[in-house]
Write a protein that binds this DNA or RNA. Structure first.
Length: 423
RNA sequence: GUGAGAGUAGCUCAGUUGGUUAGAGCAUCGGUUUGUGAAGCCGAGGGUCGUGGGUUCGAUUCCCAUCUCUCACCCCA
């Protein structure tokens, strides 16, 4: 039989790793709560139209990265979510979540993009996202950024750089874009293939070219800043003032545009240089037009999403060897009637909150002792025919040289607590 | 989607200038006195050498294709 493997780019998170995931998730979720963000859980599958409209027809995600299919049962066009913001805003509109004022929300879970996998990039990957809905900013813009800085500190991450840009209002960007395309057209023959292609798909990205001769041409290109009105400039100044006040450093990056169409004004990315080519660990910005685009009332909003795999890669590099979750007790039973005797004892300890494994799968006494040792448990509980006859149970410390003791089974819980305290 | 590198035991890797039963360490399992684990010692299991084809008397080794993984391009979390 040919063996079946996991789908390319979709990885199992095995027990060894899952421990780090649980710890990471606990930290992140506590941190989100501390800033007053409330959890929301959206489906993994949405109508394809949601993403086409929200993210933009001409984006890479919509053009070639979506897991989209037609449901043969009823003819619906469906898509595995490639990101969370569109779903979150859809849910906010659908359930009138902002009827009693603005909301701070967070979500987490898997996202799906059909790209070629590489380091830090997978077809199923995981994000946490935070969205501040109904706030015009720049106060929440600053809050979103400042809270990230706090999380990096808590996770012990160093060397993360904040890149910041102001892409203005949609009309401002459109005028700039038109002028930029005109400029690029005029210099078409001096551009490389890549720049000519981007000129069509995403003209602002042309500015990002790594080709020196293209960069030379671009030095004469119009700049975004000249197209921004007082309101846009004022918003950005306000944000920068708040970041300065919070002591969060940033670097301005005029080429930072981001791949999704819905952004305006503030856009930002947290970047690491320790992750290879996929260095963006968190990205976000303001998207004041998205509610209307999805059929809602005009509503200002901003948010970010962070990539768990990328952050965990940095966490793993930062802290080697997390403590493994250890068992408190491993219960050995050998002989007729001992399992029936041991089972309720194990349950009694578990109901007190202890981690207890009751040996399963047979094996002689010695084999069971070996398993107990290998399990990492602090204590072995031994139940043989002897103990059953006497109404007792033996407690044997496995991690330090202490005498084992035999106790009445009625006294197991207090005696066990005693023994655990000494260890 | 394009390019480059890599696939030998559960893991990390040797190895064969083409030749008989393919190795090590770790891990697993068993033994080392009876109901007592870890170290040491002894032993065992586990590989169609990624898959398919070609060249050859003979292929894990050479050639081709294919799949998978890794990294990079593109783009992004």
């Amino acid at each position: 039989m040919a063996k079946i493997q996991a789908v390319r780019g979709m990885n199992d998170i095995l027990p060894g790793e899952a421990q780090a995931w649980l710890a990471f998730e606990a930290k992140v979720e506590a941190w989100l709560a501390r800033y007053g963000y409330q959890n929301i859980r959206m489906p993994l599958v949405e109508h394809t139209q949601l993403f086409r409209r929200a993210i933009g027809e001409a984006t890479d995600i919509v053009e070639k990265e979506m897991y989209a299919w037609r449901d043969e049962l009823n003819g619906e066009d469906l898509t595995l979510r490639p990101e969370g913001t569109a779903s979150c805003v859809r849910a906010a509109i659908e359930h009138s979540l902002l009827h009693d004022g603005p909301k701070r929300l967070w979500y987490g879970g898997p996202m799906f993009r059909h790209e070629r996998p590489q380091k830090g990039r997978y077809r199923q990957f995981h994000q946490y996202g935070a969205e501040a809905l109904g706030y015009p900013g720049p106060d929440v813009d600053a809050e979103l950024i400042v809270m990230c800085a706090a999380l990096w500190r808590e996770l012990g991450l160093e060397g993360l750089r904040l890149e910041l840009n102001n892409i203005g209002a949609p009309q401002e960007r459109a005028r700039y874009r038109a002028d930029l395309v005109r400029f690029l057209e005029k210099n078409r023959e001096r551009l490389d293939d890549d720049a000519r292609r981007r000129m069509q798909t995403n003209p602002l990205r042309t500015l990002d070219s790594k080709n020196p001769s293209v960069q030379e041409v671009l030095s004469g290109a119009p700049t975004m800043a000249a197209y921004l009105g007082d309101e846009s400039l004022g918003h950005f100044e306000g944000l920068k003032r708040l970041l300065d006040a919070a002591g969060v450093g940033y670097t301005l990056n005029a080429r930072l545009v981001r791949g999704l169409d819905y952004y305006n004004l503030t856009v930002f990315e947290w970047v690491s240089d320790r992750l290879g080519a996929q260095g963006t660990v968190c990205g976000g910005g303001r998207y004041d037009g998205l509610f209307e685009l999805l059929g809602g009332r005009p509503t200002p909003a901003a948010g970010f999403a962070m990539g768990n795999e990328r952050l965990l890669a940095l966490v793993a590099a930062a802290s080697e060897g997390e403590a493994v979750q250890a068992l408190d007790a491993y219960v050995i039973h050998q002989g007729s009637g001992t399992l029936e005797y041991a089972l309720p004892l194990a349950e009694a300890l578990r109901s007190r909150g202890y981690r207890v494994v009751l040996h399963a799968g047979g094996g002689n006494f010695k084999a069971q002792m070996k398993k107990a040792d290998a399990s990492g448990a602090a204590l072995a509980l031994i139940v043989g025919e002897d103990e059953v006859r006497g109404g007792e149970v033996t407690l044997k410390p496995l991690r330090e040289a202490r005498e084992q003791l035999r106790v009445r089974k009625q006294a197991l819980v207090p005696e066990f607590e005693q023994a655990m305290k000494k260890g």
